[in-house]
């Protein structure tokens, strides 16, 4: 499995994960991203997770499925998560699959980090 193309920053229980890859299409990449995020969720119970999608330009339905599994895992550990910096075509995918109603989608990572700091779990 390749190294996960993610950059992780942790502020107490707020975990910012920047996805450092434009195309989330290949299964080894999808699995590496998903495993890296799952690891952080397990390391930080009651996590406040922020996923920064600024670099992402392409995404398959398999990656969408992984984000749903991640969302379920966050809920299981009584945490919360938000997705930020979506490019319009990627936001369109969330909207078409109606997942924009499931995920907390924000314009910027800073905005949601500040919110999480003001309202700790």
């Amino acid at each position: 499995m390749p190294d996960a193309p993610v950059l992780v920053q942790v502020y107490q229980n707020i975990v910012l994960i920047k996805i450092d890859k434009d195309r989330l299409l290949e299964m080894p990449v999808i699995n590496a991203v998903s495993d890296a995020i799952n690891k952080q969720i397990e390391m930080h119970p009651k996590i406040s997770l922020v996923l920064d999608f600024a670099s992402v330009t392409n995404m398959s339905s398999a990656m969408i499925g992984k984000f749903i599994a991640i969302h379920k895992l966050v809920k299981k550990y009584k945490g919360r998560m938000a997705i930020a910096n979506l490019k319009p075509p990627i936001f369109e995918l969330f909207k078409m699959t109606k997942l924009h109603k499931v995920f907390d989608i924000r314009d910027s990572a800073e905005e949601v980090i500040n919110y999480y700091k003001r309202k700790p779990l």
Partner: peptide, 21 residues
């Protein structure tokens, strides 16, 4: 059926919906 509300949180089955768009 990706449009079925009961399928919303399934982890698969969205490929055809997206291609159709």
């Amino acid at each position: 059926d990706a449009n079925d509300p009961d399928s919303l949180l399934l982890e698969h089955g969205r490929g055809i919906l997206l291609m159709n768009e």
